[in-house]
Design a protein around this nucleic acid. Sequence first.
DNA 1: AAAAAAATTAAACACTTGTTTAAATTTTGC
DNA 2: GCAAAATTTAAACAAGTGTTTAATTTTTTT
Lengths: 206, 206
Amino acid sequence: MKRDLSTEEKIKAAAKKVFMTKGFDGCSVRDIAKEVGSNVALLNYYFRSKEKLFELIFEGAMSDFLQAMIAVFSSELTLKEKVEQLIDKEFSFFLEHPELPMFILQSLHQNKNDAPMPSHFLKPIAKTGIFEQFERAKANGEVRDISIRNVTLLLMSNVHYPFMSKKLTMQFHGISSAEFDDDLNKHKEIVKELITNYLFISNTKE
Amino acid sequence: MKRDLSTEEKIKAAAKKVFMTKGFDGCSVRDIAKEVGSNVALLNYYFRSKEKLFELIFEGAMSDFLQAMIAVFSSELTLKEKVEQLIDKEFSFFLEHPELPMFILQSLHQNKNDAPMPSHFLKPIAKTGIFEQFERAKANGEVRDISIRNVTLLLMSNVHYPFMSKKLTMQFHGISSAEFDDDLNKHKEIVKELITNYLFISNTKE
DNA sequence: AAAAAAATTAAACACTTGTTTAAATTTTGC
DNA sequence: GCAAAATTTAAACAAGTGTTTAATTTTTTT
């Protein structure tokens, strides 16, 4: 019946690596097969088609993408602490998966099928109660009058973009990868101060 | 000798449209030929290859990308005014060319040839004297102690990312395109206040 | 150990890819 | 008006695409 499970996993790992770096259109199934050290038929044996394999990888990436967010929001911290932790956690997460923001946005940008984002990605976030906590803090006057959507946009811009723009920024300033990583660390601290100063009217805890 | 010039321009326009929306890997030369209403051989007659045509489009896009920046920096304004104007101008520019940030970053991300950014893109910026103006303001105590590179990263993050993340954000919050555009406008004002407040040290506060 | 099931392979499928060729058409210079 | 040049076209090219087929090897079950 069942044999070594690792073949299927090996294909997924190879597909993830190749899709992430080259994108769906930028690679062939033979690229992935070569990465596995096997042949193309095996890919379709386990995963029906290139597209199905991609969707699987994409959903996994999307899940990773949101995992850090959910972890922070689920904790028992004040809103300000959560914002600070979120920025810290996301930065360290993306330092280990720097291609993720680009992969997600690029995939959504040119998705042939306009399939909406599965709601099971959003529910866990709503379930953390972060939105209610935010509205409460706003009503209490702890937080500036700003929509949660604009807060999200602010956070995502400052946390995701730097990892997407590494090549552009390095070339723009003529700096090395190491120098860019230094800038990234400074950026993290700047963003933390910048956003908390802007959002939170006083230091009083919730 | 020479005939109607517009054929070459029509091909460039079609190529720009197709490359922008689908990316280099995501389209075929026949897609572009169909957009022109002609056949594939004509593309290579004018532009040798798909790659050469793409490079042309990319350089043009890159030039557009920096044009607003240069225009603002060349003016005779204070640093604070320049920052505010830059944000305004970039937002209205990208409202008309919303695919540009994604196209630039995606193209740089998976450029097979690791050709560096041509220096003739950067010289015009340096030539505006904006860097010197910034260092002077820092020495005068008008501006916080922060590197120009971090200021750039801050500005680009908050100005470019929103346009790249439209699909993600719309799906994330379940909002319409019009609602997103509203958020975008609010974001612009938020970013202006956020960044100027952070960067520029007021006399009273000191 | 034999039979059945699962996993893996090489080869072929039909189709698309970027590019080139050579012929046809249009424009230009005289 | 005519030849030369420039433009446009259809067709072909070899190589690459995702997928399928059928045969082979390996594993599991009996």
